[in-house]
Computed example of a mutant assay.
Amino acid sequence: MTKKFLVFGRVQGVGFRYFTWQEAKKLGLKGSVRNRIDGSVEVIAQGDETQMADFEGWLNKGPKTAKVERVLVFEQAEIKMSNFSIVRR
């Protein structure tokens, strides 16, 4: 299963990408995380239902340094991913 998450709030400049990468690795997910120009963070994640449910729960809280206001979730077409990475501009 592959999903795209758009995370809004105080999520840039607070280590959100790094902590997201760390959580994804811990859960065994594949995908990527990147900052968007509008101040949100985009996450593409791939895993099983349990992994994705745990990850979505974590994204709704985020790290202590962030203040997540809302998370939008979209079904994503399956794509081949080999790891979880932080995309830098």
Rank of each mutant, 00 (worst) to 15 (best):
T2D: 12
T2A: 13
K3L: 04
K3Y: 05
K4G: 00
K4I: 13
K4Q: 15
L6G: 01
L6K: 12
L6F: 14
V7C: 05
V7D: 09
F8W: 14
F8N: 09
F8G: 00
G9K: 07
G9H: 06
R10W: 01
R10F: 03
V11Q: 10
Q12N: 11
Q12P: 11
Q12V: 08
G13W: 04
G13V: 09
V14D: 05
V14K: 10
G15Y: 06
G15S: 03
G15M: 07
R17Y: 05
Y18G: 04
Y18V: 11
F19M: 02
T20S: 03
W21M: 12
Q22A: 10
A24L: 06
A24D: 02
K25T: 09
K26P: 00
K26M: 03
K26Y: 09
L27T: 01
G28R: 01
L29S: 02
K30I: 00
K30G: 03
K30S: 05
G31C: 10
G31S: 06
G31L: 06
G31Q: 07
V33P: 02
V33N: 01
R34H: 02
R34V: 07
R36Q: 14
R36Y: 00
R36F: 02
I37V: 13
D38H: 12
D38T: 08
S40P: 10
S40F: 06
V41I: 10
V41C: 10
V41W: 07
V43Y: 07
I44V: 15
I44C: 06
A45V: 06
A45Q: 08
Q46Y: 01
Q46R: 14
G47D: 04
G47H: 04
G47L: 03
G47N: 04
D48L: 06
D48P: 03
D48I: 02
E49L: 08
M52H: 05
A53W: 03
D54C: 08
D54W: 01
D54P: 00
D54S: 14
F55N: 04
F55G: 12
E56S: 13
G57D: 11
G57V: 09
G57N: 15
W58K: 13
L59T: 02
L59M: 10
L59K: 09
N60G: 14
N60V: 02
K61S: 10
K61Y: 11
K61N: 13
G62R: 08
P63I: 12
P63L: 10
K64N: 11
T65V: 04
K67Y: 09
V68S: 04
V68N: 02
E69P: 02
R70C: 00
R70N: 14
R70P: 00
R70T: 11
V71Y: 08
V71M: 12
L72E: 15
L72P: 00
V73A: 08
V73W: 05
V73H: 05
F74T: 04
E75K: 13
E75W: 01
Q76Y: 13
Q76S: 13
Q76L: 11
A77L: 14
E78P: 12
I79H: 14
I79M: 14
M81F: 08
M81V: 09
S82L: 13
S82Q: 15
N83M: 03
N83Y: 06
F84C: 08
F84A: 04
I86Q: 11
I86K: 07
V87D: 06
V87W: 01
R88P: 00
R88D: 02
R89T: 00
